[in-house]
Amino acid sequence: MKKSIRFKIVFVALVVFLAYTIMLNLVSGSISLSYKDIIDVILGNRIFTELEYNILFKIRIPRIISAILFGIALSISGFLLQTFFKNPIVGPFVLGISSGARLFVGLFILSNISIGFIESPLITIFLAAAVGSLLSMLLVLLFARKVDNISILVVVGMMIGYIASAGTDFMIAFANEHEIAALVSWSMGSFSGIGWNVLRLSAVIIIPTVVLVFFLSKPLEAYLLGENYAKSMGIDIKSFRLVLIILSSILSACVTAFAGPISFVGIAVPHIARLSIKTSNPKILVPALVLLGASFCLLADYFARTLFSPTELSISTVTSVMGAPIVIWLMVSRRKKV
């Protein structure tokens, strides 16, 4: 099959899948709302009751948008890290970056520190997560300079994650039970209760960053073909690598700050996208990641909300169950190739 036709088929399939997961989340939940009900409202044949309106516009739709935004952010963040390390088994969670963000957000939650010139606690918490992410990333990079073996680097990332978790636990040991409750509930990871103010800020951070990544497709492609080739294309490798790290950290920090640490999306989605579309060309892959990342998180959130209703699972529980088998399979298949 010609490449261009395959791309078109895959993209149509991804768009249909995204539309399906959006509709699934729109109609599923505590109150029954069928596709027909929604179509009737659109056609003006009926209006929503107050209960339906509030549940739809104040609970389900903000949650759908957050799953879309954060799914995209995690997928692109994972893709940038995988490009940087030229290895598909790295992601923000694996390399301890999410744990670093958790440590710093925990520090802010438990100590009530405020940054003088910033009034919004939302921006403060995002900056805390971003600093935590970047510091963890810098640590990984320090080791990356000395270690060529990616397996060892992944283990180093895991160790950094453990150290960051130990730091968080250390703070918890000295916190009162009320502060612990706040930190623990945030650490579970959820799209629940995310309001429009958080969504607006997340959109302002995530959308321009993803657009920037898309416009970096050409240098990304050159970088993927090898550093010497990239250099020959006039790319300053050091600066470019720094840009990759900063963009990836911004995206994962945004998710960690507002939805808590969410595992496996950053590894699993880029891999599924590469498998589906059968190319590593960023110009094709980035839009595919946007569509698939959003669908993946929407589907995970649908299971989190409905599997054990009325109670709700943490989003990481579902993304782990959906993503971990993919990562295991990926590691096993890489081993076979070696």
Binding site: S30, I59, S309
Partner: peptide, 14 residues
């Protein structure tokens, strides 16, 4: 206690 979704709470507490 039991942790429930925002929707479940809203439906019952409306």
């Amino acid at each position: 206690t039991l942790k429930i979704s925002a929707e479940e709470f809203y439906k019952a507490a409306e």
